[in-house]
Structure formats: structure tokens, C-alpha cells
């Protein structure tokens, strides 16, 4: 049976993100967490393959113990196995160190297909997927919007700024998926029951995987955040409450100043 591992990241629901006006840091308390949207579509794609041809779907996340919640949701949607990689030593990782840790866990698993989201909505780098592929020496297809099984290969639609490619790739491989790919299913009632009663979350710490401690966490990260700050809010410009005709004149004046007309 086909084996699929989906890497999911728990992220703050960004519509709710607020900044502390004094410190400028993100207020995480009370901010709901969700499965990163691109990853959830990747999971849906895996579950569809499971429905159609049969597959074993494992979800994998690296994060603090709270990240269990994201795994439970994935189990309730229909994933078969869930693995939480959690250890203080993993904390503070950049994408290089995050991907070496996730790759170390993947080496302990069987897979034909590894799925990652294109990009996490908090870190926003889109680097972890390709970097896992590099660590595992897998071919990659990124920005996937459509997937079709073709024997032991996949036919994928990879979207670019100005068009798309159809790409054929032999498994095992890694793909990164776009949230536009599909509409993820909801958790089913039976699924929720299973997720909490029947299925268990396997937790792996540093001791459970084979990885050089020089390559993980803050210490193993080549990049460092030197400082972070909020964008000095652009001063709001002028706002006019006038008749449509006058509004049109004002706009045309502004366009003239910019040499547009």
C-alpha cells in the first residue's frame, strides 16, 4: 500500500494576530491555532488518494506539546498515524535546522510520497519543503495545485506566476502543495471519536531520532533573527468626503502629479 507522510505545521490563525503596542512582539496568548492552510490541502490530497486507491497517511509535526491539537485534527479528518517531534533541543530552529530535524524523523518512516505545504503563514519562507527533499535526496515538485496518480509516478500541476507546468515525477518524491488545490474536508464525528479514543499520537524526542545535535535548534541554525520590529505604520493620507464629481476631479489631479495623464 502507498505510504504518504504529510508535514503539518501548527500556526496562529493570522486573522487574529495582534501586536503588543508597547513591545511590538506578537501576542500569542489566546490566539487560536490552526493547521497551516497549505498543509491542510496537502493532507486533503493525501486523504483523497487514501479514499481512491488506498494509502496509509501519517502526519508529522515538530513543535511544542500543544501541537498535538493539530495532529488530533488531522487524525479526525482521517489520517492513520500521527507523530509529534518535540524536544527543547529543537526550539529556535531556522528552516535549515527545522528541515534536518524533520528529515531525521522521516528517515525512520516508510514513504512513497512526502507532502509539505508550500509555505507556513507565520514564518512565510516556503523553504522547509525543498530543504527536507534535499536532506532525503528526493526529487521535488513545488507549488502543486493538482495531483494525479499514474502508476508509480505522479502527474502534477505546478503553477508559476504566468502559467503552469505539468510535471511527471517518479515516486518516492516530495511535493509542496497550495491551499488553492482543494477544499479540505471537515473532521467527521466518528473521526473525532477515533482521534481521541482509538488513535494515539507518537511523541519523539531528540533521543528517538538520529540527528547530529550540531544541526538542530537555535545552535544548529545558520541564520539568526537579529532584530524584529513592526513596520512603522504609514501615516494615513488625506481622506475626502465629497460629491462623486469632485472626488473624480481630485483623483485626476493626483494622477496628473504622478505624470499618469
Amino acid at each position: 500500500m502507498m505510504k504518504i507522510v504529510v508535514c503539518i505545521k501548527q500556526v496562529p490563525d493570522t486573522t487574529e494576530v495582534r501586536l503588543d503596542p508597547k513591545t511590538g512582539t506578537l501576542i500569542r496568548d489566546g490566539v487560536p491555532s490552526i493547521i497551516n492552510p497549505d498543509d491542510k490541502s496537502g493532507l486533503e490530497a493525501a486523504l483523497k488518494l487514501k479514499d481512491e486507491v488506498g494509502a496509509e497517511v501519517t502526519v508529522l509535526t515538530m513543535g511544542p506539546p500543544q501541537a498535538q491539537k493539530a495532529l488530533r485534527e488531522a487524525l479526525a479528518m482521517g489520517a492513520d498515524k500521527a507523530i509529534l517531534l518535540s524536544d527543547r533541543a529543537f526550539a529556535g530552529a531556522d528552516t535549515w535546522a527545522t528541515s534536518s530535524t524533520l528529515a531525521a524523523a522521516l528517515r525512520k518512516l516508510d514513504y512513497d510520497l512526502v507532502i509539505a505545504g508550500r509555505q507556513a503563514i507565520d514564518g512565510d519562507t516556503a523553504q522547509v519543503g525543498p530543504q527536507i527533499a534535499e536532506h532525503l535526496n528526493l526529487p521535488q515538485v513545488s507549488y502543486v495545485e493538482d495531483l494525479e496518480l499514474d502508476g508509480d509516478s505522479l502527474i502534477l500541476k505546478r503553477v508559476f506566476e504566468d502559467g503552469y507546468h505539468k510535471i511527471k515525477v517518479k515516486m518516492p518524491c516530495l511535493i509542496t502543495t497550495l491551499s488553492e488545490m482543494n477544499q479540505p474536508r471537515y473532521m467527521s464525528i466518528g473521526g473525532v471519536f477515533d482521534a481521541y479514543r482509538e488513535k494515539e499520537i507518537i511523541t519523539w524526542s531528540l533521543n528517538d531520532i538520529e540527528v547530529d545535535t550540531a544541526n538542530i535548534g537555535l545552535k544548529g541554525s545558520p541564520t539568526k533573527v537579529k532584530k524584529s520590529f513592526t513596520k512603522g505604520a504609514k501615516a494615513a493620507g488625506k481622506v475626502y468626503e465629497v460629491e462623486p464629481k469632485d472626488a473624480a476631479k481630485i483623483i485626476v489631479e493626483k494622477l496628473k502629479e504622478k505624470f499618469i495623464i
Binding site: W96, S99, T125, A126, Q127, G129, P130, H135, S142, T223
Partner: peptide
């Protein structure tokens, strides 16, 4: 899209960091 897909792998292979 394309450079953001290949640059991470190159950085990994060269054991260096990449800022997005």
C-alpha cells in the same frame, strides 16, 4: 516561484542559511 523552490535546496546542500 521558481527561485524560491531551488534556492532552499542549494542552501541546504551548501550548509548555509537562506533568508526569504
Amino acid at each position: 516561484v521558481y527561485s524560491r523552490s531551488i534556492a532552499p535546496r542549494i542552501a541546504s546542500r551548501l550548509n548555509t542559511g537562506l533568508t526569504a
